[in-house]
Design a protein around this nucleic acid. Structure first.
Lengths: 240, 240
DNA sequence: TAGATTGTTAATCGATTAACAATC
DNA sequence: TAGATTGTTAATCGATTAACAATC
């Protein structure tokens, strides 16, 4: 088993290690009982802060220490982590690398999800060029668009296909996640077309709240505009 | 006063009207008492759904109707709206246009905030090209970068300035909001430089949680990656 | 062993829901 | 007026915090 205590290893090497281990099919051992959405929303933050600790070469962290970094209570951290099992040790705290590996399992980082972008416009392009996916173990394998001028091109090493090939290419690549960055008018239509495929989830940037009553597609609606407005609210309150 | 009941008016005309009215300095009349962050986070959703109703030409809506659209309880909607004053009428419900105008006031849409983008990379470019800002009454007036090849250019009609001119241009344009789309390594440094300016808030896309203990800059940290991971969590749970 | 810190239960706090009187 | 629906209070539910026994 990997030496999670080697503090001279940087985080990229560690990520590789994590995936290698996954290849030996060691993953899938965490329990994911019914966990409140409040907890789930905090998990990615743990992921981020653990990466900071790894980068800094820390091998050990207590809930008190982490609580100071993350602006949470130590109690909350212990409660959150215990939803998935006892990852710490009394009198010691948490082993940073071990905890990180567990969080990665829980969040599916070590699963190796494949994603495809539908809509190769400004946002779609910007997303695939960012390091966001790699950091999280998500592999973007294809893009789709309707415009002849982008079809057949490569963006950040990823092929752009015609929308005509949507279903076939999604299945060919074994895509788990579809990222919607196309005009909202066409969103519903695309969702319909996914029903016959092996796609499990949709990351929706179209600005509408999609929901898929019928089938069991998992949909995450992103509204960055809402975040802008929350900021505007606070500023308006201040300036009043 | 504007006729908020004219159902033959589309939403863009309505937005214009809202701003014209604002110019006659009618705004600033809503009360913003201490409101829980749970409520604040729902306000932009009300904004979005009210726009849908306006677009559909609806002039009147009850909390029950809205609750069905938004997947909330009618109770919650009435509670939320009542934090800011009584916008409805017993036996009738809410006047859509009036309620929208109030939500716009609360969220500062009718204030006319000015914003500037620091970091004219893929994400910065994609953001300014989107209709997000206009829809929300935010005017993007300038961009900044360090690369000579973009400095002096225009992106979506917006001038790109050198970082050397940051403070001077921010003050010249009277910028309220700075949007950080630059590498995280330089984020702190930029925040420092804002302290002397008239900037009130930061919309932070750098992927770190910035906080500004000292001064009273309002910071909104955006983590789209967290949203991706929440989706991955749900998929991993399903596939287990 | 003594000290530290977790895992876990119980207490508190806040947010959501239900109910209904006020009133248009 | 009668019917509808808000505004608002009270009840419920869930999440956070505090406390402490277990244990490394």
């Amino acid at each position: 088993m990997a030496d999670f205590n080697d503090k001279n290893r940087n985080i990229d090497e560690f990520d590789e290690l994590l995936r290698a281990e996954q290849d030996q099919s060691y993953g899938g051992s965490v329990s994911r009982p019914d966990v409140s959405s409040a907890v789930v929303k905090r998990l990615p933050r743990y992921f981020r802060y653990l990466r900071v600790l790894i980068r800094e070469g820390k091998t050990r962290v207590s809930s008190a220490e982490l609580s100071r970094m993350m602006n949470l209570t130590a109690s909350q951290i212990r409660q959150d982590l215990n939803c998935f099992g006892g990852f710490g040790q009394q009198g010691y705290g948490y082993n940073v690398n071990y905890l990180y590996s567990k969080i990665c399992e829980i969040l599916g980082v070590s699963f190796g999800f494949r994603a495809a972008v539908v809509g190769a416009g400004n946002l779609g392009m910007a997303l695939v060029k960012s390091p966001m996916f790699e950091k999280r173990g998500v592999d973007v394998v294809a893009m789709f668009d309707v415009l002849p001028e982008v079809i057949g091109k490569k963006v950040a090493g990823i092929n752009v296909y015609s929308m005509d090939e949507l279903e076939s290419k999604l299945n060919e690549y074994g895509v788990h996640i579809v990222i919607l960055t196309l005009p909202k008018e066409h969103a519903k239509e695309v969702v319909e077309r996914l029903h016959g495929t092996k796609v499990s989830g949709i990351w929706n940037f179209t600005g509408t709240d999609l929901d898929d009553g019928q089938s069991k597609l998992i949909i995450e609606n992103v509204h960055i505009g809402d975040s802008l407005m929350a900021l505007c609210y606070e500023i308006a309150k201040e300036l009043d």
